[in-house]
Amino acid sequence: MRSTTWWLARRLALAVLVVVGAATVAFGALQLVPGDPVHVMMGGAAPSEEVYERTRHELGYDQPLPVRYGEFLGQLLRGDLGQSYQLHQPVADVIGSQLWPTVQLALAAFGLAFVVAAALAVTTAGRRSGWRRVASAAELLMISTPGFWVGVLLLTFFSFRLHLFPVAGGDSLAGLVLPAATLAIGLIGVFAQVMREGLERALEQPFVLSARARGTGETAVRLRHALRHALIPMVTLSGWIVGSLLGGAVLIETIFSREGLGRITATAIAGRDLPLVTGVAVVAATIFALLNIAVDLLYRVIDPRMKEVVR
């Protein structure tokens, strides 16, 4: 038990480092972006010299870089992400209000992708049937199709033609269906192939032969024994999964005009809203780091042997 606590403490310390690192990178990158942040802050209008200088001073842009970096870190550690230039609201509030819709979207897409992929993999692994060929072809298609294109297609078909789901926006469950499905499609193909490979490897293991020799039926062998082993490679994919979900959210939220972190980020980048961009980077890094820890804990649940290995 002591080792687990110790392990967790180390992982959390590491996570803090990662977040600070991400913030630093975002801070540095924004210094390199051409254009004057003070102008952005002041909106389109050409300000007078005096007003400009005052704003510049207020924002701290007249200080040397190291001082500004120090202040930035200090604020960050206090949990203060600063003010958005464009929205004139605290960054933390903006992100706070936009986080939930994105999390909803990501979870829904992940759940959908997982269930569909698991069904595809379990029904086709180790079988040379026509159904498997169809499934494989569909997966390849899903992997290679751009998400926005699928999104537009779904939107046209289900919303404009069939009026089944709302065209855009909406916090309702119905409003979640199309965006989540679009986001899921990019994942299903990869999930299904990884799981199928894991299943096929597991099905060749002696313990599966043992299980069958006990009279266990095929479905039970797959669900009870093999599937869990197939999840292990999925866990190693978790970084890619979170990245795809967050990255995909930017696109999907824009297409379906949904609220969310993705859309805010897109606007913030376009408008050079430095504090907001940095804030999103910090939040994303935090999510990544925490999820990674969660995933490693999950690893130990799925595969108890890991307790011996992971320290």
Binding site: Q205, P206, F207, L209, S210, A211, R212, A213, R214, G215, T216, H225, R228, H229, I302, D303, P304, R305
Partner: peptide
């Protein structure tokens, strides 16, 4: 109905023949 009930099978390497998880 035969497997496990009327004929049992024991394989060589028990570590890999029992589901590790």
């Amino acid at each position: 109905r035969v497997r496990g009930r009327r004929v049992g099978l024991v394989l060589q390497d028990a570590l890999s023949s029992l589901d590790p998880v």
